[in-house]
Nucleic acid binder design. Structure first.
Length: 410
RNA sequence: GUGGCCGUAGCUCAAUGGUAGAGCCCCAGAUUGUGGUUCUGGUUGUUGCGGGUUCGAGUCCCGUCGGCCACCCCA
């Protein structure tokens, strides 16, 4: 038996890496005063069919449950967030700054950077329409990556504005019902043959290509970059009007994060979705909103590619796994005495391990070494004296009982 | 969903159509009270699975499952 395709087992090593990622995510989100929340991993398929773009439904991991309900493992968090916030609108002061770390699913063939399951950090701001919120959100996104040790040479946030394009289409008197299709065609510019894009755009092809190639002018994006400059983060962003993003619900500023080497797919992405909550609540609640998501799979690959970032992670993990004290039971007659004091040490918060069965002393010291123990404390013939060894320096001494007044060793 | 390449021990990989191997890991001993070294010994396979060709298939053919890559799509 093995795991289902696209699903991962997290053996201790992988689990430690995943938890390292989670810890950085949580730490920075809290630094920005975001509060954590969670939604259910399974939702009614209807939630995704309703308003988040028809294309996503093909890729849902969905099925009919035993109660004949059409359900889907969540592919993204935003529809759930909109549902939850619409239901609890009056309970919270605005703006809401919420983050969540959860697992998401898609049913499609797996390949590098894309599995059927992954974990995402989602950060959203709700109830604030001003550009300051967009700037705050992107600053958070940048700082999350900086917390791993990435610098401006490692990644770039490409920012754009859907309003720029909707203004453009309005100017050209394009009927609103064609906008989604045209925006998707623009989104694919550079990823598909130019002729194919041109075909989809029809007579708009020439002006669109000209705009994409000359960059276009956007006062809002200028102010946006100025805002990040105040934070000293302007070097991490670049305006790229070609970023549109595939999801239909975005309404304003949108952005995607890429590695500078350009090898991976997007590490994170997000934007403003001012109409989604009204749409999903059938107009009952209307809140401007924006957010981004960052996945653990692509991020993990990026960490592996940048040596100093990877070393930082491995060092943190190794440090985290270390225990304080390994109790060596050299004489089995002393086991009960040892266990009694092990319990006292653990009660005081020390990380303590010992052999569960009679074991040669040399093996016990080896186990102490492998566990990363700072001290080895030996229970044997000297009892009630103990032999103690500093596993880092090799220094050895003898004392009466394990010093319960020791402060926790780092 | 489409196409290309690939599946041999826990891992990395060998084996002109002719008896399935090595290194690492793991376990034990050398060393019955002191850790990263060394030496010695030991375990491990329905060669992904199922058919076919052949005197004989890990090797060739077909199917299937799984993996990688590209396309599609993109949280």
């Amino acid at each position: 038996m093995q795991s289902l395709p696209g699903f991962r087992d997290f053996l201790p090593e992988e689990c430690a890496r995943r938890n390292y990622i989670f810890a950085r995510w949580r730490e920075v989100a809290r630094r920005y005063s975001f509060v954590e929340w969670e939604g259910p991993p399974l939702e009614a398929t209807e939630l995704y069919k309703k308003k988040s773009g028809a294309e996503i439904v093909d890729q849902l991991f969905n099925f009919t449950d035993k109660g004949e309900r059409e359900v889907a493992l969540r592919p993204e968090l935003t529809p759930t967030l909109a549902r939850v916030v619409a239901a609890h609108d009056r309970e919270f002061k605005k703006p809401l700054k919420w983050f969540s770390i959860g697992q998401f699913f898609r049913y499609e063939k797996q390949q590098r950077g894309r599995l059927r399951e992954h974990f995402q950090l989602n950060c959203d701001i709700l109830g604030e329409a001003g550009l300051a919120a967009d700037i705050e959100l992107v600053a958070l996104c940048i700082d999350v990556l900086r917390a791993f040790g990435f610098g401006e040479k490692d990644f770039v946030v490409r920012i754009s504005d859907r309003e720029f394009w909707t203004d453009f289409l309005r100017e050209k008197d394009v009927p609103v019902d064609r906008w989604d299709g045209l925006l998707q065609a623009i989104d694919k510019f550079g990823r598909e043959p130019r002729e194919k894009t041109a075909e989809k755009l029809g007579k708009l092809a020439d002006p669109v290509f000209t705009t994409l190639e000359t960059g276009g002018k956007s006062e809002k994006l200028g102010k946006f970059v100025d805002g990040l400059r105040v934070f000293g983060l302007a070097d991490f962003v670049s305006v790229d009007i070609g970023i549109v993003r595939g999801l239909a619900y975005y309404t304003g500023i949108v952005f995607e994060v890429f590695d500078r080497a350009g090898k991976s797919r997007a590490v994170a992405g997000g934007g403003r979705y001012d109409n989604l909550i009204a749409q999903l609540s059938d107009g009952a609640v209307s809140l401007p909103a924006l957010g981004f998501a960052m996945g653990d799979v692509v991020l993990g690959e990026l960490i592996q590619e940048i040596p100093h970032v990877c070393q930082g992670m491995e060092k943190a993990i190794a440090n985290d796994r270390k225990i304080d004290i390994y109790i060596v039971i050299a004489k089995e007659e002393r086991r009960a005495d040892a266990l009694k004091q092990i319990q006292q040490l653990r009660d005081r918060g020390f990380h303590v391990d010992y052999p569960l069965t009679p074991t040669k002393v040399a093996r016990q010291f080896q186990a102490a070494e492998e566990a990363g123990a700072s001290l080895a404390v030996l229970y044997g013939d000297e009892w009630p004296q103990l032999k103690i060894k500093n596993m880092t320096t090799g220094a050895r001494w003898q004392q009466h009982t394990p010093a319960l007044h020791w402060t926790k060793l780092a």
